[in-house]
Nucleic acid binder design. Structure first.
Lengths: 140, 140
DNA sequence: TTACTTGCAAATCGTTTGCGATATA
DNA sequence: TATATCGCAAACGATTTGCAAGTAA
């Protein structure tokens, strides 16, 4: 990291990045704040936001904002699709390949210069289906 | 509309829906408020929000929330993909087919019950490329 | 007539920002 | 030492909500 910008690897920035990469769930800023705070009780929420913004600009992480109203953050920077549980808001990686062909298809049909694309599936996660059987029948 | 709920077709609800369907750009609540207000100067922003929420629940319109921090609304209820200009935030429909096969691919690989999916392409719109030549070279 | 809906204004809440203090390179 | 970054708290802005008055069915 630290391209042309004069960035410093502070204890806080380090801790936030490590915590985000520890497992690939996709916490909100506030959730991440809660986790990082266990290591650094005096860190502030503003610092978490500031660093997530910087890390995202650097391409070290990615910011996810789709169906939900909260931003979610992903320690894996490469594009991949997500599935969101509409019941519990859990967000996981979707086990399907990213399609560059889709971008090309749009590119040739418009005068846009296409830079990327995001996909989010919505559904009911296994836990929610199990927890409340009958609430989410398989045939919608 | 008005399934099992006891909904009334008020002047305001009617006007909001008509205005949203007049052309298929994808206004924010506030933009739509501005337009509807020309017909009904006393309508309030809260009313616009309340009705957009209801119309969305009824499946009459859809709420779009992806890369941007503002919700955007779409008078066309059927699923379709969008392209967002990262420079001016313009949002237009993407001229590619919705792929149910994508949903199936995820369905068979997870224990989620997949309900739908959203796709948003990001890029630079023709107007922005033209307006600031050189700023957005074709080879990224 | 009834209860859904409105306009208004205040509240909410995720996120951003100003500032003086701190700590990294 | 210079200045990027921090912690704190206040500001911001989109959205939501409580309430009394208005109105569709």
């Amino acid at each position: 990291m630290c391209k042309e910008r004069n960035l410093r690897m502070t204890r806080q920035r380090q801790g936030i990045l490590e915590e985000l990469r520890k497992d690939n769930n996709h916490p909100s800023a506030d959730e991440l704040f809660g986790r990082v705070r266990k290591q650094m009780p005096r860190i502030s929420l503003g610092t978490v936001y500031r660093n997530l913004e910087i890390l995202s600009e650097l391409g070290e992480i990615q910011t996810i904002q789709m169906a939900g109203s909260l931003k979610r953050f992903d320690g894996v920077a490469e594009n991949h699709y997500h599935i969101r549980c509409v019941n519990c808001d859990r967000l996981i990686d979707a086990p399907v390949q990213v399609s560059k062909a889709l971008e090309n298809a749009v590119q040739v049909r418009t005068d846009f210069r296409i830079l990327g694309h995001q996909v989010e599936f919505t559904g009911i996660c296994p836990e929610c289906r199990r927890r409340t059987p009958g609430a989410f029948p398989d045939n919608a």
